[in-house]
């Protein structure tokens, strides 16, 4: 379980997170939605220990990752998988080498086992036999799949997705969403996803949390969020322009 308590973060004079609270249930897919530049990615970076908050805690299975450092933090991260916005694949390596990288460098598995697991992992995301290509040689959708394969190959307990479908066409968005859903059913990881994809995201989420103005204003199952009486949430879901806010 991930428990975020009163998380506060400012960059210069701009306060991005203002005492944010959120709980993520083990084994669920929790999706954080909210305006662009509203601090969703900042929140995610706190969860994976890339940013330190000015105040508050992030408890992952009882350990406060905002206080951990060095080996202890690495220990937590070994149970993580992260899919970055652009995929963050290593340009200098083939797709297969990218997927193999965490296995080789972190788990120190023998080469033969790495090869079979990489092949299996690429097959899982529908990229059999594409391993020898470089990230620059494959399409955007394939890059996301490789990134997902790389995040999942170590069989992590918690997987973070930072806008995994940005820049993809609607068909690919759905494909990626269903890929995530299928893999989630098979591997039973806890997923935390940051996304803009309204309403597609409601099909796969167990819980949706709306981030607005540095706080989570509402959290609940997709049905509850879609029927929310909260004006901010309704506006966001319907994509109403900001001018309507004052009405």
């Amino acid at each position: 379980m991930i428990k975020i308590e009163r998380l506060v973060k400012s960059f210069g004079s701009q306060q991005v997170l203002r005492g944010l609270d959120l709980e993520v249930a083990t084994g669920s897919i929790t999706v954080i939605i909210g305006r662009s530049g509203g601090g969703k990615s900042v929140l995610l970076r706190h969860l994976i220990g890339l940013l330190r908050p000015d105040g508050g805690r992030v408890l992952v299975n009882g350990a406060d990752v905002t206080r951990l450092g060095g080996r202890a933090l690495d220990e937590v991260r070994r149970r993580y998988g992260v899919v970055f916005q652009g995929g963050a694949l290593f340009d200098s390596m083939t797709c297969a080498a990218n997927v193999a990288f965490p296995l080789r460098e972190n788990l120190r598995l023998p080469a033969a086992e790495v090869a079979t697991r990489v092949e299996a992992s690429l097959a899982q995301v529908g990229l059999e036999g594409m391993g020898s290509k470089y990230p620059a040689e494959v399409s955007g959708g394939m890059r996301k799949r490789v990134a997902i394969a790389r995040a999942l190959v170590t069989e992590p307990e918690i997987v973070f997705f930072d806008e995994p479908t940005t820049g993809l066409d609607p068909i690919l968005v759905n494909t990626i969403h269903h890929l995530v859903l299928n893999l989630h059913r098979k591997l039973r990881f806890t997923a935390v996803m940051v996304s803009h994809e309204i309403p597609e995201i409601f099909e796969i989420a167990d819980a949706v949390a709306m981030l607005h103005d540095g706080r989570i204003v509402e959290v609940g199952p997709p049905g509850v969020i879609q029927a929310s009486p909260n004006r901010v949430v309704r506006q966001f879901i319907r994509g109403e322009p900001e001018g309507a806010e004052g009405a």
């Binding site: 970076r45 994976i48 220990g49 890339l50 933090l73 690495d74 220990e75 991260r77 070994r78 993580y80 992260v82 970055f84 916005q85 652009g86 963050a88 694949l89 290593f90 340009d91 990288f101 965490p102 460098e105 972190n106």
Partner: peptide
């Protein structure tokens, strides 16, 4: 620099490397 802005360096960090 490109590895930094495309989050490849972050990817290494969160792999505990």
């Amino acid at each position: 620099g490109i590895m930094r802005i495309t989050e490849q360096i972050d990817a290494l960090t969160v792999m505990a490397l």
